[in-house]
Structures are given as structure tokens and as C-alpha cells.
């Protein structure tokens, strides 16, 4: 069969350009809607051309998941109340993180001879994706008042978080040295999920939009890590764009509220932060 690799990558270049252009247009009020359209075209083109990949041999699962995904996503976006849009964005973001976890996991399950570098970036995709997912779900629950919206802090939280970070590092070591053992996969994903909950729990009230923006940045980084694992340029470019612009946006939002980014980020590692707002 004819090899489409060159064509795919050429179209990826166009797609990456359109993503950059779309983001640029999106940051000016008069052109914002056009920017969103440009970026959705970039996504569409990228998806279509990816289907020519020679590694794709069967299409039934692809068709099923794309159709059901479009229906669910479209339905949720159309039916949502205007007032609960931030919650929905948070939820979509979490689902995006979950997708990165699934891609990362699928990579380690599908290949038994991965290099240490690929294993490391796969670990990052699992970790960041997992944190994004559980963190976004907690943020969604807080915003929709399923759980208390105020910062939840408890005694020994800083200690628990440091312990958690040590465990995450340990799990990285175990995962990279013995990637075929499923136990370590569960351990990495489980710890990532707990970490996401712990990161978002101590943040609340007026800080919530900042957290969602930060988690959005994380979901970009997770996509970026998955891009390294799959050696896919466009995933890296788009993921890095979202990751970097997300961090900057988070920073801008923090400044607007007279808070420093570090202050919001480390809420779980210090005594209760009094929110003056």
C-alpha cells in the first residue's frame, strides 16, 4: 500500500500553523469566534489525515468511538445552561486528561520493548493525565456545589502531600524498570488520581477559575507527553501550545486577583491560606 507518511506530516504542519493562528485570533475580542473556527478546522484536517496512517488497519472502533463521542459532547454542549458553562469546561478538560491516560496506557500495553525515554514520557502522560482527570472532577463537583466549594484543609495535609510525592517518584522508578508488570500501571494511575484530588481540595472559592485554567494547561502537557510517547509532532506542538498558553493565562488570572501563581499552586503545602476576597 502507498505510504502516506509524508502527506500526513505535511498536513500536520498546516494544522499546527492553523492552531497557532486560531489561538492568536482567539485572544482578540473582535476575531475570537473566527479563531475558534480556524482552530476547529485545524483539528478536523488533522483527524482526517491521520486516518490514512498505515498503522490503522481496522476502522470499526474508530467509527463507533468518534460517533458516540460527538453525540455525547455535542449534546452536552448544546443543552448546558449558560450559567453552568465553567463546570462543563472543567468536565471536558477532565475527560481530555482521561483520554491522555488511556493513550499512554495503551502505548505500554501495546509495545513490550520501549526505551527508557519513551517509558518516562508515558509515565508523565499517565501522571499528568490522571491529575487532570481527578482534579477536574473535583473542580466540577465544587463548582456545581456537589461538594463544599470552600477550601478543604485538614491537619497534616502538607505531610500527606509530601508523602504522596515521594510515592509518585517511587512509582515512576518501578514503572520504568518493570513496565510489563500491570501492578505498577495501576499504582501510577491510582497515585495520579489521588494527587489530583489532593491538589484541588485545598483550593476553593474565588480561586476556582484559576485552578480550572491550570488544569487546562496540564491537559495540554499530558497531550504533549503522549505526543513524545508516540513520536507525533502535532501532538507535541498542540499540547505545548495549550500547556504554555494555559500557564500564562493562569498567571494573568492570578494577577487580576492579586494572588501569586505559586501561592495558589502550593495551597496544599502550607497552613490555611486566608482568602481576602
Amino acid at each position: 500500500m502507498f505510504d502516506f507518511t509524508l502527506l500526513i506530516n505535511a498536513v500536520y504542519v498546516i494544522s499546527a500553523t492553523l492552531f497557532i493562528l486560531g489561538l492568536k485570533l482567539l485572544s482578540h475580542p473582535s476575531t475570537a469566534r473566527k479563531g475558534n473556527l480556524v482552530s476547529s478546522i485545524a483539528m478536523f484536517v488533522a483527524i482526517i489525515v491521520t486516518l490514512l496512517d498505515k498503522n490503522i488497519v481496522s476502522f470499526e472502533w474508530i467509527v463507533i468511538s468518534i460517533i458516540t463521542g460527538s453525540v455525547v459532547g455535542g449534546f452536552a454542549a448544546k443543552r448546558i445552561e449558560m450559567t453552568s458553562m465553567p463546570e462543563l469546561v472543567s468536565l471536558f478538560n477532565g475527560i481530555g486528561g482521561l483520554a491522555s491516560v488511556a493513550v499512554g496506557w495503551s502505548t505500554v500495553l501495546g509495545n513490550s520493548d520501549l526505551s527508557i525515554f519513551v517509558l518516562f514520557v508515558t509515565f508523565l502522560a499517565l501522571l499528568i493525565g490522571g491529575v487532570t482527570f481527578s482534579g477536574s472532577v473535583v473542580a466540577w463537583a465544587k463548582l456545581s456545589e456537589k461538594i463544599a466549594g470552600r477550601p478543604l484543609v485538614f491537619k497534616g495535609q502538607a505531610f500527606a502531600n509530601v508523602l504522596l510525592l515521594v510515592l509518585v517518584c517511587l512509582s515512576a522508578y518501578l514503572f520504568i524498570t518493570e513496565p510489563t508488570l500491570l501492578t505498577w500501571h495501576y499504582l501510577v494511575i491510582g497515585l495520579a488520581l489521588v494527587l489530583g484530588v489532593m491538589v484541588v481540595l485545598p483550593i476553593g472559592g474565588a480561586d476556582m477559575p484559576v485552578v480550572i485554567s491550570l488544569l487546562n494547561s496540564y491537559s495540554g502537557l499530558a497531550a504533549c507527553a503522549a505526543g513524545f510517547a508516540l513520536e507525533n509532532n502535532l501532538l507535541i506542538v498542540a499540547g505545548a501550545l495549550v500547556g504554555a498558553s494555559g500557564i500564562i493565562l493562569t498567571n494573568i488570572m492570578c494577577k487580576a486577583m492579586n494572588r501569586s501563581l505559586v501561592n495558589v499552586l502550593t495551597s496544599g503545602f502550607q497552613a490555611v491560606v486566608k482568602n481576602e476576597m
Binding site: I47, F92, V103, A223
Partner: peptide
Amino acid sequence: GANAISGITLIG
């Protein structure tokens, strides 16, 4: 909008 772009994981 940036969140939608992070759905680029789809092509992976």
C-alpha cells in the same frame, strides 16, 4: 478554546 485544542490527543 484551548481545552478543545488539548483534545488533539484524539489523533494519538
